[in-house]
Simulated scan of single mutants.
Amino acid sequence: MAKNNKKADKKSEETVVEEPQIKNEENVEETVEEQEEQKEEPKEELSAEEKLQAEVAESKDKYLRLYSEFENFRRRTSKEKLELTSTANANLIKDLLAVLDDFERAEKSMTEDADIKSVKEGVDLIYNKFKSVLEQKGLKKIEADKGSEFDVEYHEAITQIPAPEEELKGKVVDVVEKGYQLNDKVIRFAKVVTGA
């Protein structure tokens, strides 16, 4: 029995010794897992927060770049528009200089010659040249003849008079000032008198 007691004591010692080791190992494993979870949770929160902050910073950077690009584009287009307007005017003036030269020559010849017929021919030539330069630039005359239909989009009625003939009621009776279009856009309405 003494042997059995010794064996039982040894077993109980072994079991006693083994149990706390198992418990300690389980406790260690549990605490390691808890610590890892605790470490992971703040990391995930921080990493999610950091991701959001990085996204915000990236979006802000993109916004600032886009805004500066738009401002540069706006400045560049306004500058180009001004240059285009000034060069368009320069081209028109350059073409009109030839007409101005012709007027100066006509004025000189008027003082030298007293022949009305040659002066009239010279003025007609200058007028035709001037008209052709303007037509090349896209200028068109708006048709507004006596007896034509009154069109609000092209005509401006400055007054209304009793129609001299029955067929002129509501139509153009007289043209006071011609109207013009520039590239299909009305730049001056034809001023007309209509019949009532």
Rank of each mutant, 00 (worst) to 15 (best):
A2D: 04
N4A: 05
N5H: 02
K6V: 00
A8R: 06
D9H: 00
K10I: 09
K11Q: 05
K11D: 01
K11S: 02
S12P: 00
V16P: 00
V16H: 02
V16W: 03
V17H: 05
P20V: 01
K23A: 08
V28F: 09
E29L: 12
E34W: 04
Q35G: 12
Q35A: 14
Q38F: 12
P42K: 10
P42T: 14
E45W: 01
E45Q: 09
L46S: 05
S47M: 04
S47A: 07
E50T: 03
K51A: 08
Q53N: 10
Q53K: 13
A57K: 05
S59L: 11
Y63L: 14
R65H: 08
Y67L: 08
Y67V: 11
S68G: 05
E71S: 08
N72C: 04
F73M: 11
F73Q: 13
F73K: 14
R75V: 04
R76I: 09
T77N: 09
K79P: 00
K79E: 15
K79Y: 07
E80Q: 13
L82W: 09
E83T: 15
T85S: 12
S86K: 14
A88K: 07
A88W: 07
N89L: 15
A90F: 13
A90L: 14
N91Q: 10
N91M: 13
L92Y: 13
L92V: 15
K94V: 06
L97I: 15
F103M: 08
R105K: 14
E107A: 07
K108C: 05
S109V: 11
T111Q: 11
T111W: 04
I116G: 08
S118V: 11
V119P: 01
D124T: 03
L125Q: 10
I126H: 02
S132P: 02
E135A: 10
Q136W: 00
Q136P: 00
K137I: 03
K137G: 02
G138Q: 06
G138F: 08
K140W: 00
K140G: 01
G147D: 06
S148R: 04
D151H: 02
E156N: 10
I158S: 12
I158W: 06
Q160T: 15
P162T: 15
P162G: 06
P162W: 06
A163M: 10
A163H: 11
P164R: 14
E165Y: 12
E167F: 10
L168C: 09
L168F: 14
G170P: 12
G170A: 11
V172P: 02
V172C: 02
V173K: 08
D174W: 13
E177S: 14
K178N: 07
G179A: 07
G179M: 06
Y180G: 00
Y180R: 05
Q181N: 09
Q181D: 05
D184V: 03
K185Q: 13
R188F: 07
F189P: 00
F189V: 02
K191I: 12
V193A: 11
V193I: 15
G195I: 12
